[in-house]
Write a protein that binds this DNA or RNA. Structure first.
Lengths: 348, 348
DNA sequence: TTGTATGCGTTATCAA
DNA sequence: TTGATAACGCATACAA
């Protein structure tokens, strides 16, 4: 068979470009990695040859020789929650600006899945890892640390955490929400929240609520605590069931905006006036929340900022620096229409 | 210096595992790639050694030798739209089941960005590519085809497209919406839609509306066409401005649900009864749409299904098959509360 | 069934 | 400033 087919099926390699430009393969490599080290005329020749044959450095070979993959991984629960989608989007953008590509994995709130996702990413040679939350199997973090690659936990920032975190203090945030409601005069407060098992962020939120209530000698009555999937529907069901209990709560703290929106919609459908008959709070401030009627009182989290900060932190680590992870973000309470001072007790 | 440090900083390689298990490196490789070809006792020994030192095949080396990266790329406009987030999430899951990892890139509706995203992915050696829409720079597809890797265009399915598509016919879908409104008795129909320039999907949608109107000898009046970013706010502004024109539209077709939700909220805020004073339609059927008051009439697209199908198609190609891309999906018109037959003309 | 040896495409070291 | 060449970590044809 002929040595040189006119149409080589296989993609061109650096040697081909080198031959075409009549230079050595080393020069080709230099043109793409440290162009200042090669004389301009030669540089142009190589560039032209490369463009003509559509060549670009092959990542696998490059990664092998350079011992750097230029890939980082993001491990999140799901893209179906706007909150994580925003984080990932921001990270991707920030990394892309630095020539780093993002590997994505969704573990669907399954700890085993998260573990194997991380392993798969490590095998792919990710240079850094961002992972949502810190309630994972201990092996997961051990695996990461064994590889000596930088990582960050996002969307959470527990005081005293052994991990670098880019997030906020979930417990404190919910303490603040609960205190606000208490200051508004509420004493019977219901809670609709995501499953706490295996989810540190959510467990912290519930603890924060309990903290604030305890400060006033109050607690969450069992019949006022609903725990389940974060969905509008679960918010609806829960509020309907809860309002049949006695005493009826006058305020409702929801674990996120989806739950709160469900609660709000159902409460209104039941003919209740919000916030007069029932005050409602959410968490995250997703896009639709301010559009509700009345607009949802919630806590605003800047998830794009979390993504950007996580990327900046990891990027800094990759440059050999040892950045101290920034202090926690402080979510801001956005008081809108679903809360307000409780009217003085009627009757009595 | 000593040959065997107790704490080797650098991660273990196949040779290390081979030494520990007292086999050759080839056997180690076989255990992980074609386990049936190695005797069970030896297999166990190798597995144990690998687990003990936390070894797993290094992707770059593997990719180089195997000439396969086991990476595919997804190129989408943005994760901030639930529609694309769902597609990516579903693809990621489907690929993960087959040991393939997903590289993600968001081009933010910028054609140049899309082009360079694709190039970056090709350089990374992606084995396949999924990309949203087909109105990209021609070079983009040329680059992909030059690499001879399989690809699909998602979220769009133009008849006669030169590309394999997993999506639906945008033009036909909007024709159907418009016809429905016409059948309901509307004759003055407004449109709020995303920017059409550089976006085939949106341009098709507008054409579909025009088709249906033309069939009845009607058209879109210039003062009834608002084109801008897909946001709730743009929906609000547009409807407010449009309702000051004469004749006032009795129905509004929106390019997606975000725009429609904005229109609905603003119309109600202005004291209009929906659908009596103004009928409104959306597109995509995002999660919140059915929760609106009244619930939004829209077209349902199963974006998880699009993601799954795209993954299945690419997976099939990677196995050497030549699947015919499935026929277009057919979006279903979901009639909810924001449309209804127009009351017979008052007065006259 | 297992081992040996070569190739994969690039980068980096060193010498010219 | 440029070129020759040895890694980089793994998979696979081929030999045993």
């Amino acid at each position: 068979m002929s040595e040189r087919e006119p149409k080589p099926k296989r993609p061109p390699r650096a040697v081909d470009v080198a031959a075409a430009a009549e230079v050595s393969i080393a020069t080709v490599s230099r043109v793409f990695n440290s162009p200042e080290k090669v004389a301009p005329p030669i540089r142009e020749r190589v560039l032209a040859a490369a463009k003509a044959m559509g060549w670009m450095p092959h990542a696998a070979g490059s990664a092998l020789a350079r011992r750097r993959s230029s890939i980082v991984g993001a491990v999140i629960p799901t893209l179906d929650n706007e909150v994580f989608a925003a984080q990932v989007g921001a990270m991707q953008t920030a990394f892309a600006e630095r020539g780093i590509t993002l590997l994505l994995s969704c573990f669907n709130y399954n700890q085993d899945q998260a573990r194997s996702d991380v392993q798969a990413m490590l095998a792919r040679g990710v240079e850094a890892l961002a992972i949502v939350g810190e309630s994972h199997k201990p092996d997961l973090f051990a695996d990461i640390q064994a590889r000596h690659i930088p990582y960050v936990v996002t969307y959470s920032h527990r005081p005293g955490s052994p991990h670098p975190c880019i997030g906020f203090d979930n417990r404190q945030a919910f303490r603040k929400i609960a205190r606000h409601l208490l200051d508004d005069g509420h004493e019977v407060i219901g809670v609709i929240i995501q499953p706490t098992t295996g989810n540190d962020r959510v467990a912290d939120r519930l603890d924060g609520i309990r903290d604030a209530l305890a400060e006033r000698g109050l607690g969450i009555r069992p019949q006022h605590l609903y725990e389940g999937e974060w969905s509008i529907d679960f918010g609806r069901q829960s509020v309907r069931a809860m309002l049949e209990t006695a005493p009826r709560p006058t305020a409702l703290i929801c674990g996120n905006d989806y739950l709160a929106i469900g609660a709000l919609l159902e409460a209104r459908a039941m003919g209740l006036a919000v916030p007069r008959d029932l005050a409602i709070t959410g968490f995250d401030d997703i896009a639709i929340s301010r559009q509700m009627d009345p607009p949802l009182t919630t806590m605003h989290i800047d998830n794009h900022e979390i993504g950007r900060r996580a990327a900046a932190y990891l990027l800094s680590c990759l440059q050999g620096e040892s950045p101290t992870p920034a202090p926690p973000l402080v979510p801001t309470l956005v008081l809108r229409g679903t809360t307000g001072a409780l009217a003085p007790a009627r009757g009595a």
